[in-house]
């Protein structure tokens, strides 16, 4: 009996987003990162094109974090006080494809650092490493709008990825990204309808939705991954079928979510049956990342170097020689 061909073909292509700008392109990055461009579901190379493999960015903060579990803090505690050295360690020591600078220090309920201080950190990090930069706000809408006004300008020409806009706060950052030629992260709280709506709002104010990535929130394994998995999958399928408002690359920022969970943090002495916490935490982060990669994530933002290493190996195995034909995101290039 002839086995029927069940290969699925799709009519649309996910948009291609390049982050970073080299000297020739008006920036100072040594290389750029390009994601998206798929005409098939993740790693289904036999069904379409997957021109760019997923990438792993590592998160750093503008202030030394407090209360991180020892397993997570240990690799970075020597560089906590310096975002530039922290970034350098991620890139040179752990092979981060990008740096994601979270401006946690600007949080008004925390250190409430000024927009000018934040912009200074942006400049410092851009000077310290040559990979493309993601800049992530502190999460307070009003403060983020002030902070991004300075930071977008400080990073003008570098084609960074800035985020996030939400349904309730999108005008300022969208306008900044448009003016300073940055890419934009559109956030929605585990809700595909809002994901589509945020993209629609950005489009309404004149932003090119081809320059956006979708952030549907990305909870840790065991804390709602299954919801986000199905949202990412449905988003990607709608995009591949031709829904232009769903045809953007997807970002999953998982590090902080994972390291808040007791499964990642609890020491072996507290929960002996869960085993060695020095292995369990990074494994939890890696397993969360695998899940989102399978669902369609193009960019991961992670924290623990061991998890990053595992996930990069996983991507290498699945993307292999068939994906990323230009080798642009190939760490061995």
């Amino acid at each position: 009996m002839k086995i029927p061909d069940v290969k699925k073909t799709w009519s649309n292509r996910i948009s291609t987003v390049t982050i970073g700008a080299t000297k020739e392109e008006g920036g100072t990055r040594a290389r750029t990162i390009t994601v998206g461009g798929e005409t098939a579901l993740p790693f289904m190379h036999f069904e379409g094109e997957i021109p760019h493999r997923p990438v792993v960015g590592m998160e750093i903060w503008d202030i030394p974090p407090k209360g991180w579990p020892e397993v997570l803090a240990q690799p970075f505690s020597d560089v906590y006080d310096s975002p530039s050295r922290w970034a350098k360690k991620c890139v040179e020591g752990y092979g981060a494809d990008l740096i994601c600078l979270r401006l946690q220090g600007c949080d008004p309920s925390g250190e409430d650092r000024s927009p000018k201080e934040a912009a200074e950190v942006v400049r410092e990090v851009l000077g310290a490493v040559s990979v493309p930069l993601i800049i992530w706000g502190c999460g307070d809408d009003d403060k983020d709008n002030e902070v991004f006004t300075e930071c977008s300008q400080a990073a003008a020409g570098e084609n960074c990825l800035l985020g996030t806009i939400t349904q309730d706060n999108y005008r300022t950052l969208t306008a900044l990204c448009k003016a300073d030629n940055h890419k934009l992260i559109a956030e929605s709280p585990v809700d595909i309808n809002i994901a589509k709506q945020v993209n629609s709002l950005a489009l309404d104010v004149g932003f090119d939705i081809k320059d956006m990535v979708i952030f549907p929130d990305s909870p840790a394994l065991g804390y709602g991954t299954e919801y986000v998995y199905s949202i990412m999958e449905r988003t990607r399928m709608a995009g591949l079928k031709g829904d232009k408002l769903m045809a953007q690359p997807i970002i999953a920022n998982i590090g902080l979510n994972v390291w808040k969970t007791k499964e990642a943090k609890a020491r072996a002495e507290e929960v002996p049956e869960w085993g060695d916490h020095t292995k369990r935490g990074p494994l939890w982060e890696a397993a969360t990342a695998y899940t989102y990669l399978q669902a369609g994530a193009d960019i991961l933002v992670m924290l623990h170097p061991k998890a990053v290493e595992e996930v990069k190996r996983y991507i290498e195995q699945l993307a292999g020689s068939t994906g990323d034909k230009e080798g642009q995101n190939d760490p061995h290039r």
Binding site: N193, I194, K196, Q197, S200, A238
Partner: peptide, 11 residues
């Protein structure tokens, strides 16, 4: 066949 958003008539 289409994903809902509040602006679905326009989109």
């Amino acid at each position: 066949n289409e994903i809902y958003s509040d602006s679905y008539l326009d989109t």
